[in-house]
Simulated scan of single mutants.
Amino acid sequence: MADPLQYERYEGGSAEAERLLFERLRADIVRVQQKNQQAAGAGSPARVFHASPVLGLDNARLRFLDSLPAGLSGGFAQPGAAYPVTVRLSSSTGIPRPDAAPDLRGVALRIQAAQDQSHDLLMLNTPASHAADAREFVAFATVMAGVTSTAAVASRFLFALPRAVGWSTANRMRRVLQAATGRKVGSLARETYWSQSPILWADAGPVRYLLRPRDSDTGVPAPRRDRSDPRYLRTELARRLAQEDIVFELCLQLFADEARTPVENASVEWPEDIAPPVPVALLTIERQDIDSEEAQAASRRIEQLAFTPWNTTDMFRPLGNLNRSRKTLYEASSAARLGRRSSV
């Protein structure tokens, strides 16, 4: 198995120094969660991010290709292997908003490889993160905590964010997020989702992964966005799944070198001409009625789950500063939301 230490550089010069930083950032994230709860008028904390669920179901299926290259095989990733998958599609802000509000869209997968082994894959519909590392990520979240309007977001981009991270970083964040949230999203079934941060993939070393629609066209026409329907994205998925399966390709982008495909800087897109996506599996969400009592019960169960890239094995270990911070930050957030004592 590849040694992740050859790819990673810990902030502060050691894993312990970086861990102490993450513990300080943990308190900031909990405060963000509390501010969002107050702004939403909620009786209990929501997810600090992705508080707006669009669809949750537990009957999807991931099947690795029979032609999976030998260099990409390892652990649960084997040619022809198939596993049940829980899928959660969501909008990314920590305060629930109507689907028509500008936002990033995300997907979380839980692949059940065995009774005692699962793997969580988390992605957004933009190829690079607005934040290079954990410091930037938490600084941005802190500045935007409790925001409930587009005007307030613009104001904080203009004044508060530059004070927190500097003008250059603030401008980069603004450009990335405006490009990602300015697009009109008609269907979450037709979006591509990227991991943004790398993971170890068995002996292949670091990879970023992505989900993209298997076909460039579909039998169900793209709908017009109905702003009168606050849940139009879910309405569209319900209509689509009543008529057809939704199928995505799971693809890997392989690490080339630190300059062009950095491990530690999540704000740098891995170019497809340098790291072309290699299809490795198909994710299938079968045709179904997502408004049935059974589907609604599954959706409620999924809202009690805590997705984290650290729900995996050493062979598929998350890499990079931003991913390493998630072990601390996500655990603290889920502990507050689910009423558990944080063990971090």
Rank of each mutant, 00 (worst) to 15 (best):
E8D: 06
D66W: 06
D226N: 11
R105A: 05
E18P: 04
P206D: 01
V32K: 02
P221N: 02
E269N: 13
R234G: 14
A154G: 15
C251R: 03
P96D: 08
G219T: 08
T181V: 07
P230R: 06
R105E: 05
A151K: 15
G80Q: 08
Y193K: 02
A27Y: 11
R212I: 04
V268A: 10
Y7N: 02
Q37L: 05
V344D: 12
L20C: 10
E18A: 07
R212P: 02
P4Q: 08
T308W: 03
H119S: 10
L158N: 13
L241Y: 04
P279A: 02
V48Q: 04
S73Q: 15
F157W: 15
D289F: 09
S52C: 11
P102N: 08
R300Q: 12
D314T: 09
A281L: 08
G166A: 13
E258V: 07
T328Q: 10
Q33N: 11
L237V: 06
P277G: 12
L211W: 03
R183A: 07
T284W: 00
A82Y: 00
S343R: 14
A189I: 07
D215Q: 01
F22Y: 14
S91Y: 02
R172Q: 14
L282F: 07
L65R: 09
F76R: 01
D66R: 10
P213S: 06
C251E: 11
L233P: 04
R105V: 01
R214K: 09
Y209V: 02
I302L: 12
P53Y: 03
